[in-house]
């Protein structure tokens, strides 16, 4: 196990930052591009995970624990959000029988 922290010193922090930023925007593009509500929601999860990776890497490189605690809370929040979100989606599906977000457009103007 002692060899693993060596990696942190060989790969610059910047690379992790770029990786997680990249993931974040992939998630964002997914949110913008997809129309299936569940997949949109999954893309938001990718965005959250990107943030998690960002925070964990900084926390690990800087030896500062609060970032990882934050990640723990983000996961907790994500779990809560997912449960509520899926409940909403199921409720919506019961009424409208579709998962295309653009068909939920009765409220407008």
């Amino acid at each position: 196990m002692n060899t693993i922290p060596e990696l942190i010193r060989t790969v610059p922090l910047q690379h992790y930052l770029v990786l997680s930023t990249c993931l974040f925007f992939i998630g964002m593009i997914g949110v913008l591009v997809r129309r299936n509500i569940i997949i949109v929601f999954m893309c938001i999860e990718i965005m959250l995970n990107a943030v998690n990776l960002l925070m964990v890497s900084v926390s690990a490189y800087r030896g500062e624990a609060s970032g990882q605690i934050m990640v723990l809370f983000i996961m907790a929040v994500a779990a809560a959000e997912v449960s509520v979100g899926l409940a909403i989606i199921v409720m919506m599906y019961k009424n409208l029988k579709t998962t295309n977000i653009d068909l939920f457009n009765q409220l407008k103007g």
């Binding site: 964002m28 949110v31 913008l32 129309r35 977000i101 653009d102 939920f104 457009n105 009765q106 409220l107 407008k108 103007g109």
Partner: peptide
């Protein structure tokens, strides 16, 4: 502007981005 407020979520998210 009413047409802008189309009710489509994908459009709202896109305009935000």
């Amino acid at each position: 502007l009413k047409n802008l407020q189309s009710g489509k979520l994908s459009w709202y998210l896109l305009s935000t981005a």
